Amino acid sequence: MPESIWFRDDARRVRRPRLSRERIVEAAVALLDAEGVNGFSMRALAARLRAGTMSLYEYVKSKEDVLDLALDEVIGEIDTEEHGAWRQTIVHQLTQSRQVMRRHPWMAALTGTRPLLGPNALARSRLFYSALAAAGLSGPALTAAVGALTYYVNGYVAAENTWWATVRTPDADAEIRERVARFLEDNATELSRHAHVDDGDFDRHFLLGLDIILDGIEARLPG
């Protein structure tokens, strides 16, 4: 009687799927989420994929290729649909951008160091520019408005990510804010009246700051 396959180990052995660019990008995003840009390397990526480092180069030419692809992949998590008037569309997209950058803290380090020309980045830029152009901006004013909004979000989230990487918990955040507030009351009374350091509502602060910038942009619109 021939031996059945079910008696052998290879019946339960699962063959690893062949590498693909999609698998490489998925693993790269996971590695960047875990280790950040400084902890990213092709060797570490290959280890996560249980593959040889050189086998990755069948699908990408360099580490920089992988970083570009990974960045565009997570930018694709941002909605690129219009949401009402130009201002609502901008607020919706930038609120989503902040959420995505909070999930992937390494994004801020990459968005400022390379051209964003992937399909997802271009879709996002088209919506962004179109919304502001439809409002009436053009030329240098349009470019400056895009820059001001982009830098606001990138800077806010970079600071927010650094803060939570250091402080880590809401309780620790509240304790530090309380100590700073007491210090200002004792040593800088006038500043204490204006700087409400005990208010740690990052969401509300983000939207308020965004509204202030949009108010300035709206004030410059034709008519």
Results as ranks from 00 to 15, higher is better:
1 M>D: 15
2 P>H: 11
2 P>L: 14
7 F>S: 13
7 F>R: 14
7 F>M: 11
11 A>V: 10
13 R>N: 11
14 V>R: 12
15 R>T: 15
16 R>M: 06
17 P>W: 01
17 P>L: 05
19 L>H: 02
21 R>S: 08
25 V>D: 01
26 E>N: 06
26 E>F: 04
26 E>T: 14
27 A>I: 04
28 A>H: 08
29 V>I: 05
30 A>C: 07
35 E>N: 07
35 E>Q: 10
37 V>N: 07
38 N>E: 14
39 G>K: 01
39 G>N: 03
39 G>Q: 00
40 F>W: 05
41 S>V: 03
42 M>G: 12
43 R>H: 11
43 R>Y: 09
45 L>Y: 07
48 R>K: 15
49 L>Y: 00
53 T>F: 00
53 T>G: 13
55 S>Y: 00
57 Y>V: 09
65 D>L: 02
71 L>G: 02
78 I>F: 04
85 A>D: 14
97 S>L: 15
98 R>S: 07
100 V>N: 00
102 R>A: 13
102 R>L: 15
102 R>K: 12
107 M>K: 01
111 T>R: 12
111 T>Q: 08
114 R>L: 15
117 L>Q: 13
118 G>L: 05
119 P>M: 02
123 A>D: 05
131 A>K: 05
131 A>V: 05
135 A>V: 04
136 G>A: 09
141 A>N: 09
146 V>W: 03
148 A>N: 03
149 L>T: 07
151 Y>C: 10
153 V>E: 11
154 N>W: 12
157 V>S: 01
157 V>P: 00
158 A>D: 11
161 N>G: 05
161 N>K: 06
162 T>N: 12
172 A>L: 10
172 A>Y: 00
177 R>E: 10
189 T>E: 15
192 S>N: 11
193 R>E: 10
194 H>W: 14
196 H>K: 10
196 H>F: 01
199 D>F: 07
200 G>C: 06
202 F>G: 04
202 F>I: 13
203 D>N: 08
210 L>A: 12
210 L>F: 09
213 I>W: 01
220 R>G: 13
220 R>V: 12
222 P>R: 13
